[in-house]
């Protein structure tokens, strides 16, 4: 699969899972993974999913504006950089966000998220 197509497929899977079943994100992370969420660093799959499932909203929808990917140069990984809008249920205006994923191949032939950095874009 072409890297850009793979990145796009990953992004669709990630945000669809986030929007419908955040617990389902657990198998995309490992214990070595780190999420920085609005500047807070969270280590390991279980802590990451605990954070994502503890966010103060139940329903949301991500609409993706741009996806860029590049080879990361180490371990045949891939950098994926996403920008888009986040709509929270009950809120009128969307929030702009950007997110970076560093994906590493697994022995099973898929990818997991080693590094994940999320920021809302305001100010």
């Amino acid at each position: 699969m072409d890297p850009d197509a793979l990145a796009k497929a990953f992004v669709e899977h990630y945000y669809s899972t986030f929007d419908t079943n955040r617990n389902g994100l657990a198998n995309l992370y490992q214990e070595g993974s780190m999420l920085t969420f609005e500047g807070q660093k969270i280590q390991g799959a279980s802590s990451i999913v605990a954070k994502l499932t503890s966010l103060p909203f139940q329903q949301c929808h991500h609409s993706i504006s741009t996806v860029d990917c590049q080879p990361s140069g180490v371990n045949a990984g891939m950098l994926v950089f996403v920008s888009g809008n986040l709509q929270l249920a009950g809120e009128q205006h969307t929030l702009k966000f950007s997110q970076m994923f560093h994906l590493i191949p697994t022995p099973q032939g898929s990818y997991y998220v080693l590094n994940d950095i999320f920021r809302l874009n305001y100010a």
């Binding site: 140069g73 180490v74 950098l79 950089f81 920008s83 950007s98 970076m100 874009n121």
Partner: peptide, 10 residues
């Protein structure tokens, strides 16, 4: 203009 940039440092 608003910008976002990722820099991967080696």
């Amino acid at each position: 203009l608003k910008l976002s940039q990722v820099l991967s440092l080696s």
